[in-house]
Amino acid sequence: MNQTDLTLRPPRSVRARLGRYVLLPRLLDKCRATLAGKNGEYHYACPLDQHFFKFTGIDPEALKAEVATGKGDGEILEWIEANATKPREQWEIDQWSRFQETRPVDSDVETLSWFLEIVGKLSKTREDIRTIADYLDVDDYVSFGGIA
């Protein structure tokens, strides 16, 4: 099994794609690390991952069981395509992925306050961190020694 050790490096970016799906490579890294007991502070099937599960209709535990068999990314993608309860056209996947990459933070006061707080912990001067994807990329970098 490809055992990703997320105590040594971050998972792939939210923006990385597999079969046109953003989130999926990161989700698989977290799943493999969780199975290996090497997930560090990363959580498989977190709220961000749930966007993928909802869009495809894939059950997180069923995917986890399939990943546990040791299949690589391409084989897992084939399994997802065969088992999605909400099959999607390529254009739908492209559109969904573009939205996920640029998904704005919810505009309610509580969510905006939370987002400003977590971004502020990374940097007081960065004005380019506007989406969850932006935040996660910078947070992953900083968590493993980079400077925001």
Rank of each mutant, 00 (worst) to 15 (best):
T102H: 14
V138I: 15
H43A: 14
D59S: 14
D137M: 05
G19I: 07
S13T: 11
P25F: 03
F52C: 06
D139A: 15
G74T: 11
E81M: 12
V109M: 06
P10S: 12
I76Q: 00
A65C: 05
L35M: 09
L8Y: 03
W91F: 12
T131E: 07
T125D: 14
P11R: 04
P10F: 01
H51P: 01
F53I: 11
R9E: 12
P60W: 00
W96S: 06
C31A: 15
W91D: 14
K71N: 12
L18Q: 11
L18F: 07
S13L: 10
E89H: 10
E81L: 14
L23K: 07
D128S: 08
R17L: 09
T34P: 01
D29I: 08
D29A: 09
I93C: 08
T131M: 04
D49H: 08
I129A: 03
E81W: 11
G37Q: 10
P60R: 02
S113R: 14
A133T: 10
D137W: 01
A33N: 02
D49G: 05
G74K: 13
G40Q: 05
V14N: 05
E117P: 00
L35H: 06
A65N: 13
Q3Y: 06
S113F: 10
P60L: 03
V67I: 12
E127D: 15
L63A: 04
E89G: 06
Q90G: 10
T131L: 05
E75V: 07
D94L: 12
L136W: 05
G72N: 15
I132K: 00
V138T: 13
C46W: 03
L116F: 11
Y135H: 11
P60A: 07
E101I: 10
R17P: 01
P47T: 11
L63K: 00
G70E: 08
D49T: 07
L122D: 02
